[in-house]
Simulated scan of single mutants.
Amino acid sequence: MRIKTIVIYLPIVFLILYFGYTQFENKSIKTISTTELAQKLEDESSSNTIFVDVREPHEFEAGHIKEMKNIPLSTLKTDYKSLSKDAEIVLFCRSGKRSLQAANILKDYGYSNVVSVNGGIQAWQGEVVK
């Protein structure tokens, strides 16, 4: 009877721990909406902000925001050095998941001012360049 209980509850405990950890890990990352992104893009005081689209090149070419620099998540671990640690780094992707992953990578490399955009290109209402 005890083995059945362990077999039933152990996977549930692991799932709770996993999802709790991922939520905790991402809580230290500041997030903004696409509306706030639009405001940042228009704000002239954002001169020390780097806007990075972490989608793959074919996704970026299919449609992107004009001011975005494309550094795919798949190459970020080698290409991150082109980003100033003194700048605010605003990360953008298709839905917001990869930008959170990118933010965590940059945090691991010592970047302290990283922001992830919730909803990504799917939620973007502004102009897109193709």
Rank of each mutant, 00 (worst) to 15 (best):
N26D: 13
K27E: 12
S28D: 10
S28R: 14
S28C: 00
I29A: 11
I29F: 04
I29L: 15
T31K: 15
T31A: 06
I32H: 03
S33A: 02
T34G: 06
T34E: 06
T34A: 06
T34W: 02
T35N: 07
E36K: 04
E36S: 05
L37E: 00
A38K: 03
Q39K: 15
Q39M: 05
K40M: 14
K40T: 00
K40D: 02
L41E: 03
L41V: 05
E42T: 07
E42N: 15
E42F: 01
D43T: 05
D43E: 11
D43V: 01
E44D: 13
E44I: 11
S45R: 14
S45Q: 15
S45M: 09
S47K: 15
N48G: 13
N48K: 15
N48M: 09
T49S: 13
T49N: 11
I50P: 01
F51W: 09
F51P: 06
V52P: 01
V52S: 04
D53I: 11
D53T: 09
V54Q: 13
V54C: 12
R55H: 08
E56M: 12
E56S: 09
E56A: 13
E56G: 02
E56Y: 08
E56I: 04
P57F: 05
P57S: 10
P57C: 10
H58K: 09
E59W: 03
E59T: 06
F60R: 07
F60Q: 06
E61P: 00
E61A: 15
A62T: 12
G63C: 06
G63N: 07
G63R: 02
G63L: 03
H64Y: 13
I65N: 07
I65W: 05
K66F: 07
M68G: 07
M68E: 08
M68R: 06
K69E: 13
K69R: 13
N70T: 07
I71N: 05
I71P: 06
I71L: 12
I71E: 08
P72Y: 11
S74M: 11
L76P: 04
K77L: 11
T78D: 14
T78R: 13
Y80R: 06
Y80E: 14
K81F: 09
S82G: 02
S82N: 07
S84N: 09
S84T: 02
K85T: 09
D86H: 04
D86F: 01
D86K: 15
E88D: 12
E88I: 11
I89C: 11
I89F: 10
V90F: 05
V90I: 14
F92G: 08
F92H: 11
R94Q: 15
G96N: 11
K97C: 00
K97M: 09
R98V: 02
R98N: 13
R98F: 08
R98E: 07
R98G: 03
S99V: 04
L100E: 14
Q101V: 13
A102R: 08
A102T: 09
N104M: 10
L106R: 03
K107P: 02
D108R: 10
G110C: 07
G110Y: 08
G110T: 02
Y111N: 06
Y111V: 07
Y111L: 09
N113E: 12
N113R: 15
N113I: 01
V117L: 09
V117D: 02
N118Q: 14
N118W: 00
